[in-house]
């Protein structure tokens, strides 16, 4: 893994001071029979303490791959082929297996998409919290169990459920249990990979509310992966929009919502209804995400873009550029607008 020095010019910094997590020029490849696929291509972003960064995009855009790369749980045929991931001043990509074993969960934990698959069906929920605690702290089984009861209480599961098995819990309870496991060692950051996708809308709302309360209480940061942009607008501080393995736009939620810069973001905004907002006609996004074995030339979005600049967008790859202090987007139209104003 080569440590590529970040090019300061195109780095979307979050806030002043040292970020908690800093991802620079991350590259992840899937080595398939049909060839090498760059699932994540030169992605950079920062997350600071107690911040929520949402990553959104269609399935296959590489957002989950980023989540798995940051926790280093990618499995073959996926390989990190370049870039740097720093957690405070530690280089995550340079860690040995033992260092990683100690680091993960104590500083950085992950919540998986489907709680049913993330929980071991033959172990009780309590046991799955206890073994996480005991793997990191020299505590007795009783102490660990007391902590497990506390954690279940924090996520709103009655302590008499500690010996329940996953199949005995409802979908919402299972996801709460997974969150309790993620909280077990009080990490500074939790990566949430579509944690509510498998749930119905009402439960989804509740869980999001609870995650927000937990965040305020414990002060951890969240990298929140979802395909549902509407969820992010209310929940996250900043939003990153992924398209075909690249970051298309990143900025504060409000700005992304009020003043999207990338045509793809505009399209995503129009493809979901807002509960509070005005009634607008829903537009799907025509076309489908590109095949990354042979990505489109120039801007990867241009074949689906209805405002593409003839000639330029097919040829020239757009780089992220600053449109406001904390807002970056990768689109040639920004130049055009600047030129016109």
């Amino acid at each position: 893994m080569s440590a590529i020095s970040p090019s300061a010019a195109k780095t979307p910094e979050s806030t002043s001071g040292q970020p908690l997590l800093s991802v620079r020029n991350l590259e992840v490849e899937y080595r398939t029979k049909r060839g090498r696929v760059k699932a994540v291509d030169h992605v950079s972003f920062d997350i600071s303490t107690n911040e929520v960064l949402g990553l959104a995009g269609e399935s296959g855009c590489g957002k989950s791959t980023i989540a798995h790369a940051v926790t280093r749980i990618l499995k073959p045929p996926a390989y990190i082929t370049g870039g740097q991931i720093m957690f405070k001043s530690t280089d995550i990509l340079g860690m040995s297996d033992d260092e990683l074993r100690a680091f993960r969960w104590e500083h950085l934990s992950i919540v998986f998409q489907s709680a049913m698959n993330a929980l071991n069906p033959v172990l009780s929920v309590g046991a799955q919290i206890i073994d996480a605690i005991q793997a990191h702290m020299p505590v007795s089984k009783d102490e660990a169990r007391a902590r497990a009861l506390e954690l279940l209480d924090v996520v709103g599961i009655h302590s008499n459920r500690v010996d329940s098995y996953p199949h005995q819990l409802s979908g919402g309870m299972r996801q709460r249990a997974v969150i309790a496991i993620a909280l077990a060692l009080n990490p500074e950051m939790i990566i949430m990979d579509e944690p509510t996708t498998a749930l119905d809308v009402v439960v989804q709302k509740q869980i999001i509310q609870e995650i927000r309360q937990l965040k305020d209480k414990f002060g951890f940061s969240i990298l929140f992966i979802t395909h549902d942009l509407s969820l992010l607008v209310e929940f996250s501080d900043r939003i990153g929009i992924m398209y075909a393995g690249e970051l298309a736009e990143i900025g504060p939620s409000r700005e992304i919502f009020d003043n999207p810069q990338h045509p793809y973001t505009v399209r995503l905004m129009n493809s979901f209804p807002t509960i509070s907002g005005p009634r607008i006609e829903l537009k799907g996004i025509p076309g489908s995400p590109p095949d990354l074995v042979t990505p489109p030339s120039g801007c990867r979005f241009h074949p689906r873009c209805d405002v593409a600049i003839a000639g330029r967008c097919q040829e020239e790859h757009p780089e992220l550029q600053q449109t406001s202090p904390r807002h970056f987007a990768a689109c040639h139209l920004i130049d055009e607008r600047k030129g016109n104003s």
Binding site: Y30, T32, K33, R34, G287, S288, P289
Partner: peptide, 20 residues
């Protein structure tokens, strides 16, 4: 639309078309 014919890439593990 031409690009609709392109194979949608959801995961790299999708059954590969043999190009033998």
């Amino acid at each position: 639309m031409g690009q609709e014919k392109q194979i949608r890439m959801t995961t790299a593990l999708e059954p590969a078309k043999t190009t033998r």
